[in-house]
Amino acid sequence: MPHNEDLKLDHVANLARISLTPEEKERFAAQLGDVLAYIAQLNEVDVSQVEPTAHAFPVVNVWAEDRAEAGLSVEDALRNAPEKRDNMFVVPKVVE
């Protein structure tokens, strides 16, 4: 398991789309360092013969039939929108 120096806060914060203040970076680096060091004890466990558990009680083929149901009215859809116009959500122009 990688060591906690590998925790590249700037890169990770960028992936997570959260801007961190220098103070936060410093604090998080230390705190998460502790946590990662603690987590490192999982390396003691021999998992070579173990299947991962995604769901405690797995079942398969959970689906619904293809029937369209009434959804939200445009009003309800946009009720919580920070900015809206012409029945659409508005953001500053997205440049690709």
Binding site: A68, E69, L72, M88
Partner: peptide
């Protein structure tokens, strides 16, 4: 989800939570 799928409908009329 079971919200209707389609093309050419008014904006944001084919949504649900």
């Amino acid at each position: 989800t079971r919200a209707a799928a389609g093309y050419g409908f008014d904006e944001n009329t084919l949504t649900d939570p």
